[in-house]
Design a protein around this nucleic acid. Sequence first.
DNA 1: CGCTTTTCTGCATAGCTATGCAAGTTTAAG
DNA 2: CTTAAACTTGCATAGCTATGCAGAAAAGCG
Lengths: 345, 345
Amino acid sequence: MTSWHKRVMTKRVITSIDVARLAGVSQSAVSRAFSTTASISPATREKVFKAAEALNYKPNRIPSIMLTGRSGMIGIIVGGLRNPLYGSALEQLSAGIREAGFQVLLVQVMDTVTLEMALDTLAGYRVDALITALAIGSEDTAAALSALNIPVICFNSALIGPGISSVRSNNFDSGRRVAALMQEWGVERPYWLAGPVVNAASRARRAGFLEGWGAKKLSVTELQGDDHYDSAFSAVSEALRAGHRPDGLFCSNDLMGCGALDALKDTGGMSCPEDVVVVGYDNIPQAAWHSYQLSSFDQRPDALVAASLDILARSLSAPDERLSETHVIEADLVLRRSTSRTLAP
Amino acid sequence: MTSWHKRVMTKRVITSIDVARLAGVSQSAVSRAFSTTASISPATREKVFKAAEALNYKPNRIPSIMLTGRSGMIGIIVGGLRNPLYGSALEQLSAGIREAGFQVLLVQVMDTVTLEMALDTLAGYRVDALITALAIGSEDTAAALSALNIPVICFNSALIGPGISSVRSNNFDSGRRVAALMQEWGVERPYWLAGPVVNAASRARRAGFLEGWGAKKLSVTELQGDDHYDSAFSAVSEALRAGHRPDGLFCSNDLMGCGALDALKDTGGMSCPEDVVVVGYDNIPQAAWHSYQLSSFDQRPDALVAASLDILARSLSAPDERLSETHVIEADLVLRRSTSRTLAP
DNA sequence: CGCTTTTCTGCATAGCTATGCAAGTTTAAG
DNA sequence: CTTAAACTTGCATAGCTATGCAGAAAAGCG
């Protein structure tokens, strides 16, 4: 690790005292001029603004953090941004946070170790709250999050603990729903294409799907992928070459769904939806692209985001409450060509 | 704008003084125990760590920002994360920044107004440097960035000014190269599918492409989109319905390239590469997906990121230099099915 | 053991703003 | 014009850590 830090104070920075001097007022006046709540005469404010402009003064938020103990920063922990769903979720979250006058301290995390380090860092910067958009999460993680003593919101994941809230879609029900629909469509060889086992949402979708088929006494064949297109393409291609012939395939997410569709078509020479129906999850833009037209569950990221921001707002206005809520947003199944099949004969 | 801020100090937070008291040492000892450079005996450090653990103390970075004038935060300004290229670039940038011991203060910006506000905010938080990944950028913007008096790095865009460096791919040359290749492939009706006019990179690609064809005295037909799939699909579909029959299409980016491919196939009934060759830009994962196989320029995001981080490191270690460099990374043209055509007859 | 050198520790302070308080000033009311 | 009320301003201070300095302790050396 390179160390770019320097201890020496090199550049002299303009302070409110400089502005006060130039404007011929006290430092407090400068502070009040930039405050929305304080009382100050328009004339003084004008003088201050003019001096500030001349000196290119920007109010320094750091000392106020020390005074109030609130940084105005919300930590966001993400695991990766390659899935467009997370990109767009981060986009919306940060927009809402900014709207509310807060900033985003972004941390990217690869594993549990870096997560622990990240938490220390975030605590050091005194973030006012924390939003995690991580698939991974154990009891240890939950405990570490709770220990931060700030509101924590799990976006699209579920952890339990004091001060920890979570917002997610009803993965289990969605899985069961796919099973039911496939049964109506006459599917007899159902397949499940899994994401990484650490992914709790993926596990829940699988569980629902399996239960839905369990009622019919039909067992589901499971394929394993890693949340991305390539692994899905490989896994399905390999299965097809091994003689598998699914007539219904539920994929852990849309990136995998697209990979599966391509494999079914190119490797297996199968046509969709005639030979096989496919359902994904997330309803990313690519699912709607003409070459795929993949049916998918829309997790309604805006609803997820809105719920998260709502919890955030309430948590911040009542810091002693240690809110611990769970919001489950029902996912919308968007039907497209990949399942456009009439009912079973 | 809702105001979640509270002025009252509610939660008592553990300070280094608390730890010092419990450990039976001075506050300075605690500070030194958590510092890597200071000199402290192993015994004392041990005592401090034990006490810190017991009290769940996390060193507070805020006062140190006041003392040193350095926040350890790098501001990153993005315009949107829907294009996977930016998601993955942000991912890599933030990883590198974290690696170097810095944090990421993320700001999302929609227009020039929010940009101005964002700059004030970032200045207030005393970010040590700034990386912008914005397509937009005028002279005013450049001046505002320069006025921050911190190193600024334009990622994938080019602004000029003291203290402003930029890293981008050779958009103009790439455009010219596509023109030359299309000429070898026998293209006679070249089309350009543009991104938003504010996008400087898109304009440069266009300019190169036009110049390349200008030499042949062949004029390029231009279509207008907005950087995303849907607009590309619409624009191309409309053109096809209006009787256009391109035999070579260069698209401002891959999202648009995919939209164009689908329109050519579904709306125009054309086959690619037989009837028309298509080239995109960015080499996002989707360009490699089997249903598209879109030839594209790989901007080599890792090289862009590495160059950015290199400039960042040097800027931070020599804050008085006001570095102002321009790095142009040559994009790799990745040829796929969408241009797999033998030379012109 | 006496000396120098090195290592360790505590004291005191700087860093910059927001705010309670009191004093001063303007406005409103009678 | 007097008095009360509202508003404005400056003073002084708190908030928490890192670090220069000096003194103390330990280590090294002859």
